[in-house]
Design a protein around this nucleic acid. Structure first.
Lengths: 125, 125
DNA sequence: TTGCTAATGCAAATGCATTTGCAACAATAA
DNA sequence: TTATTGTTGCAAATGCATTTGCATTAGCAA
């Protein structure tokens, strides 16, 4: 039977509050603000559970490593800020479906990544 | 001074012939058809050189690992076949620029990945 | 041809993200 | 409260892609 621990609660809260994909490091440091003893292995174990139960989804890009985000979102894509190294959701889809494919290729799904500077970084400049 | 070795020549030929992104395993096995002794370390060393001199570009996606492709191509995106696990180029750009961004985000570049079944796999079925 | 040294093959070593064993701890059912 | 057993923290262990040390091989300038 699954128990509700404070570590687990903290992780859930973080994902509910930060509305964007998060990496393990980031999750760990945000989590330690609530539970000082929070351990990396605990984060990994819980992320794995949350993915298995379908509450989180995993997302990875070479430039930003592995990220996790809530699974309850509609189809969307991501923006990656090269300045603060954070990922953001871009609601909606900017794929031009008519020109997307090539004859003979059966497209089942897709991913789009935009790179650049996020609002807070460009304001700070 | 850089020497032209037969291993190097084989690697270049492979990239010129196969007109799509290739992974290390694939390069190694294609290369061994020409030079039986071809070693993985040699492939890695040469790929690194070719990237440094700008002849190749590196590309990575979690589902397909690290791939390399010639750098002399125009802007394009990639199709990844979940059946044969190969990557293909999709000439042109299917990004709907007007709907791509979000207010405040400065987009500098982007990547698009399409997933599905490639022509030869769907014919073979 | 010959000499110099870049390049190769092989195996061992790295670097890193993620996983795991284990003892101590803590969330529930009774 | 108490017993049960899921969880955590810690450190050591994995798994893997990529790199490196070294002896041998082989381009290429002279």
């Amino acid at each position: 039977m699954i128990r509700q621990t404070k570590q687990r609660k903290v992780l859930q809260d973080i994902f509910l509050k930060e509305n964007r994909p998060l990496g393990v490091e980031e999750i760990l440091s945000l989590g330690r603000e609530q539970v000082t003893s929070l351990n990396q292995a605990t984060v990994y174990r819980n992320l794995k559970l949350m993915v298995e139960e379908g509450w989180l989804e995993r997302l990875a890009h070479e430039a930003f490593g592995t990220l996790y985000e809530r699974a309850d979102k509609e189809h969307h894509h991501h923006f990656l800020c090269r300045s603060c190294n954070r990922a953001f959701d871009l609601p909606g889809c900017a794929l031009d479906h008519d020109n997307a494919s090539l004859s003979g290729f059966q497209v089942e799904n897709h991913e789009i990544y935009l790179f650049g500077i996020c609002p807070s970084c460009s304001t700070a400049a």
